[in-house]
Design a protein around this nucleic acid. Structure first.
Lengths: 282, 282
DNA sequence: GAAGCCTAATACCCGCCGGGTATCAGGACT
DNA sequence: AGTCCTGATACCCGGCGGGTATTAGGCTTC
C-alpha cells in the first residue's frame, strides 16, 4: 500500500478546514483544479469518500473527520522531525519553554532561577501549548492537570493547589468562608464562561464565549462571569472581587511537560531539586 | 520553510537503519544514485549533516539520530492516518486488540466475554504493542504498567497484582516464603535476562540476551535465568520451578491502552463494568 | 605500490506527475 | 432562461524523481 505524502495531507487539511476548494487552493498558493485532482486522487487511493461535494462547497464525511484529526497530528509529527533535527545540530540553543499567559509568575520565576541552562520563554494562548510541543516549536511546557491535555508527554509535578472562585465583592457568595462546585456552577446572573473546544466550536450554555485570557479578564472585571481558578492565580484579583475557596474542586497540579526525547534533563533535575524537596515554600 | 515529504523520511530511515546506501536502495526498490541524491537534498534542506560518509558505509551524526527517532514516529503517524481513515469508512469492522504473548489468558478471556462488540485479537512480541497502536494496526492494547511505554495513550486500569520470582525448585531461594528485589537481582549463577532496548542494542550485564518470550521460556526451563513476573503469569510455571513472592517489587497494573480517538468506547465501558466493580474475582 | 574492490557521488537522460490555464457541468439564485 | 457560484475535466508544460553509466576516493591485497 503506497504511503500518503505530506503534500496530500496538507492539501486535505486545507480543504477540510475551509470546506471550500477555491479558498483552500488560494491558501495553499495553488490553483483550484490541481487541488480538486489531488483530493480525488487521495480519495481513490484510500478507497474512501472524504468529502460530500455540494453546490455550496464541501462537507466532511465521517472518514473525512477522522483523516482531518489524524492528518493534523501526522503533519505536526513531520514538522517536529524537521525542527528537532535542526535544533539537534545547534547544541548551544536555549531550551524553549512555553506557558500560557496568566500562569503563576512566581512559580515560573523560581523555575527559571533554579535552571542553570538558558531558557527562552514563549507565551501562547490556552490550549496551544500541547500543539507547540507536538510540532517542535517548544521543548517543554508548564501546564496544569487536569485542565490541559497531557497525552503523549512525560511530566514532572511542580506544585499542587486548590481552587478558588472569583466573585464580585457585592455578591452574596463573597461573604462565604468556602463554597462548593455545585453552588458556583449555577449562579443566576453569573454564568461560567465557555471556552472553545479543540475544533473551535463552543459548548452550549448560558455563559459568555471567550477565546483568550484577556477577554476573560475583561468579563471578570465587568462582573459578568464567575471564575474558578487555581488559588495562586492572583493575576485575576482586583479590589472589586473576592476569592472564595471551592472545597470540592479537584486540585490543580502545575506540571512540567515535554515530549519523549526532549533535551530537558537539566531543567527537570533543577525542577526536582527546587520543587520536590519543599513544595510549600512558594 | 518547505515541509519534508514522507518519501524523504522513508528514504532516510532506510539509510539510517542499513547504514549503507546500496543496501538501503535495494530495500527501497530504487537505485543507489537517486537515494544518495535524495539524502543530500534532505541534508541541504535541513541545513544539517545527518550522516558521516565513510569508506565502509555511513554513520549517524547526533542530528541524524534525532531525525531517525522523529522520522519513525512521524511515519507511524502518517500510516495511522491512512489506516484509521480507511477503517472509519467500515463501521462493521471488529476492534483490533493487540497484546503480547504470555499475558494473562484469564483476564483477556474475561475482557472478551464482557465486550459486546466483536474484537479481533492480534498477538505480537514484547515492545511491539505501542508501535502497532501508533501506526493504526491496532485500536487498543492490553499492556502493563510500569513495564510498557504508555506515553500518548489513554488508559483504563484492569487489574493490579504483585510480582513473583521464578526460581529452580532446587535453588535455596525456592524454600523462602518471600524475597526482596535486592536478593534476586544478584543471584550467583542465576542472572536476570536482558531485553533489547528500543534501538535493538542490549544493556550491559551478566544475563543472557533475549528477544522473545519463547526464548525466555527456553532459558527458564533450562534453569539458566531468573524471572520476576506478575503473579498471574502462570504460563511460566513448570513443575521444576517455584514462584516466590517478591515483597518490594512494584505492583504491576494490567491496563487497556488506546490512542486518543480510537473507537473503543464500548470495550472500555465493558471493561469498567467487569473489572472496576470487582477486581478480586478472577 | 599498482590492481582491484567497494563505497558514495556525479553526469546525464527520460518519463511521469504536479501545476498551470481554459473550459465544462450543474444547482441556486435572480 | 440567464447568471453566478460551485467543483470537475481537458489539456499542456516544466521540474523532479528515477534510471544507467561513470567517476572519485580509500582500503585491501598481493
Amino acid at each position: 500500500m503506497d504511503d500518503l505524502e505530506t503534500r496530500e495531507l496538507r492539501y486535505f487539511v486545507a480543504v477540510a478546514e475551509e470546506l471550500h476548494f477555491g479558498r483552500a487552493a488560494e491558501r495553499l498558493g495553488i490553483a483550484q483544479p490541481p487541488l480538486s485532482r489531488a483530493i480525488l486522487q487521495l480519495e481513490r487511493r484510500l478507497g474512501v469518500k472524504l468529502l460530500d461535494r455540494d453546490r455550496r462547497g464541501a462537507a466532511l464525511t465521517g472518514a473525512g473527520e477522522v483523516l482531518l484529526r489524524e492528518a493534523r497530528t501526522a503533519l505536526d509529527a513531520v514538522a517536529a522531525a524537521a525542527r528537532r533535527t535542526r535544533q539537534a545540530a545547534d547544541p548551544g540553543r536555549p531550551l524553549v519553554l512555553v506557558t500560557k499567559a496568566g500562569a503563576s509568575h512566581e512559580l515560573l520565576r523560581d523555575l527559571l532561577d533554579a535552571a542553570e541552562t538558558p531558557v527562552e520563554v514563549l507565551l501562547c494562548e490556552v490550549g496551544e501549548q500541547a500543539h507547540r510541543l507536538r510540532d517542535g516549536q517548544a521543548d517543554v511546557a508548564v501546564m496544569h492537570r487536569p485542565y490541559d491535555d497531557l497525552a503523549g508527554f512525560e511530566t514532572q509535578d511542580l506544585h499542587v493547589e486548590g481552587q478558588v472562585a472569583i466573585v464580585p465583592a457585592t455578591h452574596p457568595l463573597a461573604a462565604r468562608e468556602s463554597v462548593t462546585l455545585a453552588e458556583v456552577s449555577d449562579v443566576p446572573g453569573l454564568p461560567i464562561a465557555r471556552w472553545p473546544r479543540l475544533d473551535g466550536t463552543y459548548p452550549d450554555g448560558p455563559g459568555p464565549e471567550v477565546r483568550t485570557q484577556s477577554q476573560l479578564a475583561q468579563l471578570v472585571a465587568l462582573g459578568l462571569t464567575l471564575l474558578v481558578i487555581p488559588a495562586s492565580s492572583r493575576a485575576w484579583q482586583w479590589p472589586e472581587h473576592v476569592a472564595v475557596p471551592v472545597v470540592d474542586a479537584p486540585d490543580v497540579t502545575t506540571v512540567l511537560a515535554w515530549p519523549p526525547g526532549s533535551p530537558v534533563g537539566p531543567l527537570v533535575r533543577a525542577a526536582r531539586r527546587r520543587f520536590l524537596v519543599a513544595d510549600g515554600s512558594a
